Amino acid sequence: MTSRVAAAIDAARAEGRGAFVGYLPLGFPDLQTSIDAAVALAENGADILELGPPYSDPVMDGTVIQEATQTALAGGFRLRDTFTAVREITRRVDVPVLVMTYWNPVLQYGVDRYADDLLAAGGAGLITPDITPEAAPEWIAASERTGLDRVFLAAPTSTDERLELIAQNSTGFVYTVSTMGITGERAQLDAAARTLVARLREHGVEHACVGIGISNAEQVAGVLEYADGAIVGTALVRALRERGLEGLAETAQSLAAGTARGAN
């Protein structure tokens, strides 16, 4: 089965640019606004949407995203709202939607049931930050059955053995973490990201997208000198929080302007 996510990255490449992957938490500031925000993001330059259902213990997220998550949970977000949101977003825009989720909620819901419901809602796959391929046989089987993408994370500290496992088991792209630690904006993106992408290429990875720390068009352009996609979260969440849908759309447009190859 062809990966819709890989196809979106290839389509951007054919247009002479890198892919812009935009992250937003579901349910922030409320469910309907988060749906409208995802649609606005897709309509203003995002090639792939990454949506995060709120989780009570978001170990990887920085303050801006954690606060948004708490707002969503306080607003009564339920796990099943994930599928409602994905269904409405994919009905309105033709951009692949990945759900970025911690593993515990998927286990509690039932791995096969989660995969089936995500597929039925029009979702493209899962990004699983806190589970490694060797711990995910049930998810690998479910995704092979449904054709959903499996996006695993690679970090600068990953061994070659671990990178080989990630390369063999990821579909869509490999989520390349530029710095160790929590998400958020960084003034200077780590040189570690460039080295890590080069290591992933040695393991045969065709699509590597870099996330964590990218907050402006210049940084997007910098990452796309060596990676296939740039993942932005915090800057978008902050724009939505401070300036609503209009601010989010403007920020998305400005970030998307950094995706053209040779734009500098």
Rank of each mutant, 00 (worst) to 15 (best):
E250P: 02
G213S: 10
L73G: 11
L153C: 07
E50H: 08
A208T: 02
V210Q: 02
D130E: 14
L240M: 09
R199P: 09
A198W: 07
E164P: 05
I65P: 00
Q253I: 05
V197C: 00
T90A: 08
E218H: 02
A191M: 09
P105Q: 11
P133I: 03
I89V: 15
G204H: 01
G204A: 00
I214E: 08
G16C: 12
C209A: 15
G229V: 09
A124R: 04
A230L: 10
L26K: 07
D10V: 04
A115V: 04
Q168S: 14
R92K: 13
R186V: 07
E88S: 07
I231G: 04
E202W: 02
G211D: 04
V5N: 06
I89Q: 05
A46F: 10
Y109E: 15
T251H: 02
N264F: 12
T234F: 04
D47G: 05
V177A: 10
G229M: 00
A208M: 01
L245S: 05
A239P: 06
R91Q: 10
G27F: 06
T176C: 14
A124P: 00
A85G: 01
E218I: 00
A252Y: 05
G52V: 13
V111W: 11
I231M: 07
R201E: 12
H207F: 13
E161A: 09
E134D: 13
V93G: 12
A142M: 12
T159H: 02
L248W: 09
G229S: 03
S178L: 02
A19T: 00
V64T: 14
A19W: 09
E225A: 11
A124H: 07
A8V: 02
T90Y: 00
G213C: 03
G172R: 12
G27S: 06
W103T: 14
E225G: 09
D228Q: 15
L26A: 07
T171S: 15
W139M: 15
A46K: 07
G184S: 10
L31N: 01
L236W: 06
L126N: 06
I48H: 08
A120S: 13
A252S: 07
V99F: 08
E67T: 09
A11N: 13
L118Q: 06
E161N: 08
N104S: 15
